[in-house]
């Protein structure tokens, strides 16, 4: 690693970005902080309530439930999508006409607007008009995602796998393509098994992109809003009301500014904390491995 040149004038180059992001991040965030410590009777009259909203929220059943649902959803998504993505990336062709076909079709779900993804799955999974729902009903499976919480969860999880596994696949594929052929030849000469090729050549080479994949998938699944909102609207009951849905309901539906603002801040802090932990742990592992390997 070459030392970077110290140059304070570089701040001028960063300034436009800083100003635009500050305008659209700091001002709104300050508004949220402001609301989270005040109460209002309307007419723009606010008074100070201190930490009350935070205390109420942290003790409320509703928040605990939404938080628990959110964490389990993200955990399930990561456990399925990451291994599945790696396996598919390993099986993808490296040359020939199959490559563009795979890449283009796999990238397609990523560019569909999120509510259209919801609509597609709504149409696909409905018992009366959907292929999936109709087939399951014909097979005698009791499946109705608008009434059965388990079916609703399964539908949303399968939809998320459909929507986002490609991201993991494409990232891993890029990592695999960057491995020089010489590595595989050396492994062949050494008589390495398929498993040890994966363990000692492919996995370490994919580590950087896997880190990005896990981070992106975690962040986006933790913030999921549009797709479950379109498919189930948070129901049946509250069974698929994730944090974002609950938050929007509170802020824009009921206009409870104080609690909504307090929830926003806790939500944001949780995401920041988890991302930071992820990032530190993963990069530490990376450093140790590169030291050990050298």
């Amino acid at each position: 690693m070459i030392e970077k040149q110290v140059n304070q004038k570089a701040w001028f180059m960063v300034l436009p970005v800083f100003l635009v992001v500050a305008f659209s991040a700091i001002i709104p965030l300050m508004t949220v902080v402001n609301y989270s410590v005040q109460d209002t009777f309307g007419n723009n009259q606010f008074f100070w309530v201190g930490m009350d909203w935070f205390r109420d929220l942290l003790h409320s059943e509703r928040f605990h439930d939404a938080f628990f649902r959110q964490v389990s959803f993200s955990a399930i998504i990561l456990c399925i999508e990451i291994p599945l993505g790696i396996v598919i990336a390993l099986a993808m062709p490296r040359k020939g006409w199959g490559v563009p076909v795979c890449l283009i079709t796999m990238a397609l779900p990523l560019l569909i607007p999120w509510n259209v993804v919801g609509t597609i799955w709504q149409i696909f999974a409905r018992v009366d008009i959907g292929l999936l729902g109709h087939t399951l009903a014909a097979l005698g499976v009791d499946y109705n995602y608008t009434q059965d919480p388990v079916a609703a969860w399964i539908t949303i999880i399968i939809m998320d796998i459909w929507h986002w596994t490609s991201l993991v696949v494409l990232l891993c594929y890029a990592g695999l393509c960057s491995i020089p052929d010489a590595y595989y030849q050396a492994a062949k000469i050494d008589g390495a098994s398929r498993l040890s090729v994966f363990r000692y050549i492919q996995l370490p080479k994919m580590q950087r992109v896997l880190l990005i994949a896990i981070l992106l998938r975690f962040m986006d699944s933790f913030m999921i809003y549009t797709e479950p909102f379109v498919i189930t609207g948070g129901g049946p009951g509250n069974s698929t009301t994730f944090m974002s849905i609950d938050l929007v309901k509170m802020a824009i539906g009921q206009f409870d500014l104080g609690p909504a603002a307090a929830m926003s801040l806790i939500y944001f802090l949780v995401i920041l904390l988890l991302c930071w932990v992820f990032f530190t742990v993963m990069s530490n592992i990376g450093e140790e491995r590169s030291k050990g390997g050298a």
Partner: peptide, 13 residues
């Protein structure tokens, strides 16, 4: 961190 911020947090502000 702004890439990680949930849009739901920013909708109202």
């Amino acid at each position: 961190t702004n890439r990680m911020a949930p849009p739901a947090v920013f909708a109202l502000p």
